[in-house]
Design a protein around this nucleic acid. Structure first.
Lengths: 201, 201
DNA sequence: ACACCCCTATGACAATTGTCATTGGGCAAC
DNA sequence: GTTGCCCAATGACAATTGTCATAGGGGTGT
């Protein structure tokens, strides 16, 4: 019996995935959580064989949770299950010690298969996504550039960003200008959109 | 036996929801589709009692599909199941003839309950969301203002928007300026974000 | 017929934004 | 200890963006 921990913030989706997995004879969902920070605690308590983690969650994302699980319960294999096929996410997931990376777009039948495959010691990654992660290269943005772009996402003004980050407006404009050029964008909004799309923020 | 049509673009979520519903003795999923344009055809062929529709789908959104189902198969009750609790979505859903509006954040147990309730002739809407739809009022934006905001979402320049809509740059700036004021924003990006968040685009 | 709103457009002005050159401090690699 | 990178800052300049007044055409409703 494969013991699975399920982390996913949308309750209805989580419950539905649990129902899906419960149809499999050899799989048992032993824990369900809806927040990143609850993952490790639940893992330590229930000792699952596989942790199935969403990335976007309140209270700490699934990538951070993956790292903590690897540390605190090395016997547990981590599989990321996410909506977005962002190359940066895949890269971070692998660096965090995940052995699987699934998209919610994939057929429902893939889920149980993937779980069995990681239990058999294989890695499970959509080959197309793996390719795009390679061709996209790694994140070219410095930490500060990521900060200013993240702060640009909701339409804040330069003055607003500067205030939020406690730096001068000129510095904000310098970072933005650098990011815009690295990403081949024409303004900060496009740059922020591009960076987010690749999972670089 | 309640016959249900399921429309949801993420295959894994769709399959999982189907598994969830199949656990109920009195519910049967008779059709599954992943695109808006497939909804009506499938509904006419399988004559479901309830159509469970996601909003964001490729090939025509769930709100348009709801209207078509109401027209083509009046006996079928439409329930919207969506990630985003946007007041504009709720309003449009009701205008499209939906009798239920569920969030994917809601507990998984709610789903079957909601289906049974709409079959009993009730309407099912999150009360909190209904309130915010009332307090938000209706969409204050003119069609053209919505166009320019939608075109602003991806960070296009004024020149780019003007080209896309075949109007002069000056006109674009007029529409944007009007929208910014109506939404109490400080620039077009913030305005676009606010409008999208309310389901006004 | 008239009022009203929407769309389109222009010109002018002010404010914000993006670019570039330059400086200086801190830190890590070699 | 020198090189290189990141961060922060300033000033100046150019480009883009937002505001406002104004105006004509088209459609709707009364």
């Amino acid at each position: 019996m494969i013991r699975v921990l399920l982390a996913e913030d949308q309750e209805m989706v989580r419950g539905a995935l649990a129902a899906l997995l419960s149809l499999e004879e050899d799989i048992q969902v032993v824990a369900q959580v809806g927040r990143g920070e609850e993952v490790l605690t639940a893992a330590l308590k229930t000792k699952p064989d596989v942790a199935l983690l969403d990335i976007e969650m309140p209270g700490g994302d699934g990538l951070g949770a993956a790292k903590m699980v690897r540390q605190g319960l090395p016997s547990c294999r981590v599989v990321i299950l996410t909506t977005f096929g962002r190359s940066g996410y895949l890269r971070q997931a692998m660096e965090s010690g995940a052995v699987g990376f699934l998209l919610k777009d994939a057929p429902a039948t893939e889920l149980a298969l993937a779980i069995r495959r990681v239990m058999a010691g294989e890695r499970v990654v959509d080959p197309e996504l793996a390719l795009s992660a390679l061709s996209d290269g790694s994140n070219p943005l410095t930490p500060r550039e990521q900060d200013v772009l993240r702060a640009s996402l909701d339409g804040a003004s330069i003055a607003g960003i500067a205030a939020r980050l406690y730096i001068s407006e000129g510095t904000v404009r310098n970072h933005l200008s650098a990011a815009i050029q690295k990403l081949n964008a024409h303004n900060r909004v496009e740059a922020a959109r591009l960076a987010e799309q690749k999972g670089w923020l």
